[in-house]
């Protein structure tokens, strides 16, 4: 992965962590991990797992550590609660 893309991934991870932490809901580490788990594609995840995590913010770093161990956190907010197979209602239409 190019350094440009890597630095963008780091930026994104830090940005997610900063905003989730500021929302003050639940555990920000799990919240960040949940978000990245649900929305990032595998190569992005692999890239940041393999990257030097010391450059990340503390929350982002802890979240990546958690995910790299194979964790799949349950939904930490309504944003990551999706419809079950026969459910209607959790729309996140843009």
């Amino acid at each position: 992965m190019s350094s440009d893309t890597l630095s963008r991934l780091r930026y994104m991870a830090n940005q997610i962590a900063q905003n989730i932490e500021s929302m003050g809901e639940g555990d920000p580490v799990l919240g960040t991990a949940d978000h990245i788990d649900k929305f990032w594609d595998p190569r992005m995840k692999q890239a940041i797992f393999a990257d030097d995590r010391s450059v990340l913010s503390p929350v982002a770093r802890a979240a990546i550590d958690h995910l790299a161990q194979g964790a799949h956190p349950p939904p930490q907010s309504r944003a990551t609660e999706f419809n079950a197979v026969d459910e209607v209602g959790h729309s996140d239409a843009g």
């Binding site: 907010s77 309504r78 944003a79 209602g89 959790h90 729309s91 996140d92 239409a93 843009g94």
Partner: peptide, 23 residues
């Protein structure tokens, strides 16, 4: 992906977080 990415995707995320659905 679709062009909602570049316009109202935050509506999707934001309203889903607060109201449970973004419609």
């Amino acid at each position: 992906d679709t062009c909602a990415r570049v316009c109202h995707s935050p509506t999707g995320y934001g309203l889903k977080t607060t109201f449970g659905t973004s419609a």
